[in-house]
Design a protein around this nucleic acid. Sequence first.
DNA 1: CTGTGTGCAAAGCATTTGCACTATG
DNA 2: CATAGTGCAAATGCTTTGCACACAG
Lengths: 154, 154
Amino acid sequence: MRGRHRLKHTLREKVGRWTQPRDFILDILDRSREHLSAKDIYDILYSTHPGIGLTTVYRTLELFHRLGIVKKVSSPDGQSRYELSSEEKKAHHHHLICLGCGKIIDYQDFAKEELELVKKTEKVLSQKHNFLIFDHNIEFRGLCEKCRKTLAVE
Amino acid sequence: MRGRHRLKHTLREKVGRWTQPRDFILDILDRSREHLSAKDIYDILYSTHPGIGLTTVYRTLELFHRLGIVKKVSSPDGQSRYELSSEEKKAHHHHLICLGCGKIIDYQDFAKEELELVKKTEKVLSQKHNFLIFDHNIEFRGLCEKCRKTLAVE
DNA sequence: CTGTGTGCAAAGCATTTGCACTATG
DNA sequence: CATAGTGCAAATGCTTTGCACACAG
């Protein structure tokens, strides 16, 4: 909770105007442990504030993304999903993605070993390819428990 | 070259009919060291065989993907990009993705260390979350040389 | 007050689908 | 020849844009 308020404070300074939609969307992102699509957020929002449009959700997510507080992950189902970035959530993690339903699960096992490898790799790659690396992403793809059962026949 | 012919032979058996479009598209994928979007492939194809439609490209890529010989990577620009799968190209690798232009570069450094970590992680995750893991993906995201220069002012 | 942010409707893209036609096996 | 595969045009679904209005600072 304290973290959330600090974040809002920072945002108020970075952003031109702190509006209701921005406030609500930040709260939804902050509360959710899931990775939400723009539509997901719109639907949640719709139940309490039906006046807010899907466009605003997209624009707000885009804004938060530019400010570096939201990460965008493209799901195999064609949508993008959004989450507060690790810095804000204070936990570096990666994803387990279900190819059946698009669901994304976080994991943060082996963070230390991963970090070593990632650092080493980043260093070599950025030199070799003259690339400016901002970020990395590790995913494991497969089927979640539910989809395993559903698709069992095939 | 020999590899390519063996692959075609295998495919002829797995697939119902071995048609011209399928043949051309396989060749384009096999020759290219880039990760091509459906449109890219269509454009290449168009210069020599203007009769073949974009739909067929999508359907063929989807077919190859189902057969496991083509990998699909979603690029931050919203398109999907396709490449022959590692098994066929005989080299396990991962991606360096440019957030500016969507370009994807392969790398295969630290494959051995990566494999260790990946194996260990897969084992733990599949048990913990009851997930059936097919595949993993590691990406580094940033700006390629060209986009670094273009965006330098911002 | 004065723009910045918003909602709505329409436009833009990548991808998929329906259907009549073609060409493989 | 029978039917799997194809091309075209239209449909779909996510995301972006244009424009008049609304409200935060």
